[in-house]
Measured scan of single mutants.
Amino acid sequence: DDLEQFAKQFKQRRIKLGFTQADVGLALGTLYGNVFSQTTICRFEALQLSFKNMCKLKPLLNKWLEEAD
Results as ranks from 00 to 15, higher is better:
residue 2 D to P: 08
residue 2 D to E: 13
residue 3 L to I: 11
residue 3 L to M: 14
residue 3 L to T: 00
residue 3 L to K: 02
residue 7 A to Y: 06
residue 7 A to D: 04
residue 7 A to S: 15
residue 8 K to D: 03
residue 8 K to L: 14
residue 8 K to R: 13
residue 8 K to G: 05
residue 8 K to H: 09
residue 9 Q to W: 10
residue 9 Q to S: 12
residue 9 Q to I: 07
residue 9 Q to G: 10
residue 10 F to E: 03
residue 10 F to L: 01
residue 10 F to Y: 04
residue 10 F to T: 06
residue 10 F to W: 04
residue 11 K to R: 12
residue 11 K to W: 03
residue 11 K to H: 05
residue 11 K to M: 08
residue 11 K to G: 00
residue 11 K to A: 09
residue 12 Q to D: 10
residue 12 Q to P: 04
residue 12 Q to L: 10
residue 12 Q to H: 08
residue 12 Q to V: 09
residue 12 Q to F: 04
residue 12 Q to K: 09
residue 13 R to W: 04
residue 13 R to A: 08
residue 13 R to P: 01
residue 14 R to E: 01
residue 14 R to A: 02
residue 14 R to Q: 01
residue 14 R to M: 00
residue 15 I to E: 14
residue 15 I to R: 07
residue 15 I to W: 03
residue 15 I to Q: 13
residue 16 K to R: 12
residue 16 K to W: 04
residue 16 K to Y: 12
residue 17 L to R: 03
residue 18 G to E: 01
residue 18 G to S: 01
residue 18 G to V: 01
residue 18 G to K: 06
residue 18 G to W: 00
residue 19 F to Q: 03
residue 19 F to M: 13
residue 20 T to C: 09
residue 20 T to L: 02
residue 20 T to W: 01
residue 21 Q to T: 06
residue 21 Q to P: 10
residue 22 A to Y: 07
residue 23 D to L: 03
residue 23 D to M: 02
residue 25 G to V: 02
residue 25 G to Q: 04
residue 25 G to Y: 02
residue 25 G to F: 00
residue 25 G to E: 03
residue 25 G to K: 11
residue 26 L to G: 10
residue 26 L to A: 13
residue 26 L to R: 15
residue 26 L to D: 13
residue 27 A to Q: 15
residue 27 A to V: 06
residue 27 A to L: 07
residue 27 A to H: 13
residue 27 A to N: 01
residue 27 A to K: 14
residue 27 A to M: 07
residue 27 A to S: 09
residue 28 L to G: 00
residue 28 L to R: 00
residue 29 G to H: 11
residue 29 G to Q: 05
residue 29 G to D: 03
residue 29 G to C: 05
residue 30 T to I: 07
residue 30 T to E: 10
residue 30 T to N: 08
residue 30 T to S: 13
residue 30 T to M: 12
residue 30 T to L: 08
residue 31 L to N: 02
residue 31 L to V: 10
residue 31 L to D: 13
residue 32 Y to G: 10
residue 32 Y to P: 04
residue 32 Y to A: 07
residue 32 Y to R: 07
residue 32 Y to I: 02
residue 32 Y to E: 08
residue 34 N to L: 07
residue 34 N to Q: 11
residue 35 V to A: 06
residue 35 V to G: 10
residue 35 V to K: 15
residue 36 F to P: 13
residue 36 F to M: 14
residue 36 F to C: 15
residue 37 S to A: 09
residue 37 S to V: 04
residue 37 S to W: 02
residue 37 S to F: 02
residue 38 Q to C: 08
residue 40 T to L: 10
residue 40 T to S: 06
residue 40 T to A: 08
residue 42 C to K: 15
residue 42 C to A: 14
residue 42 C to P: 09
residue 42 C to D: 14
residue 42 C to H: 13
residue 43 R to H: 05
residue 43 R to I: 03
residue 43 R to K: 13
residue 44 F to G: 02
residue 44 F to Q: 00
residue 44 F to R: 00
residue 45 E to L: 04
residue 45 E to A: 06
residue 45 E to T: 03
residue 45 E to S: 04
residue 45 E to Q: 14
residue 46 A to K: 15
residue 46 A to I: 03
residue 46 A to M: 15
residue 46 A to W: 05
residue 47 L to R: 14
residue 47 L to S: 09
residue 47 L to V: 13
residue 47 L to M: 15
residue 47 L to T: 05
residue 47 L to W: 01
residue 48 Q to L: 08
residue 48 Q to F: 02
residue 48 Q to G: 09
residue 49 L to C: 01
residue 49 L to Y: 05
residue 49 L to K: 06
residue 49 L to M: 12
residue 49 L to E: 05
residue 49 L to S: 04
residue 50 S to L: 02
residue 50 S to K: 09
residue 50 S to M: 00
residue 50 S to G: 05
residue 51 F to C: 07
residue 51 F to E: 15
residue 51 F to D: 11
residue 51 F to Q: 15
residue 51 F to V: 14
residue 51 F to M: 10
residue 53 N to V: 09
residue 54 M to L: 07
residue 54 M to W: 02
residue 54 M to V: 03
residue 55 C to W: 10
residue 55 C to Y: 09
residue 55 C to V: 14
residue 55 C to G: 08
residue 55 C to L: 11
residue 55 C to E: 09
residue 55 C to F: 15
residue 56 K to C: 08
residue 56 K to T: 13
residue 56 K to V: 10
residue 56 K to G: 06
residue 57 L to K: 04
residue 57 L to Y: 02
residue 58 K to R: 14
residue 58 K to P: 02
residue 59 P to C: 12
residue 59 P to G: 11
residue 61 L to I: 04
residue 62 N to H: 15
residue 62 N to A: 13
residue 62 N to V: 15
residue 63 K to W: 04
residue 64 W to R: 05
residue 65 L to T: 03
residue 65 L to G: 00
residue 65 L to A: 07
residue 65 L to V: 09
residue 65 L to Q: 03
residue 66 E to H: 14
residue 66 E to I: 14
residue 66 E to W: 02
residue 66 E to G: 01
residue 66 E to T: 11
residue 67 E to V: 08
residue 68 A to M: 15
residue 68 A to S: 12
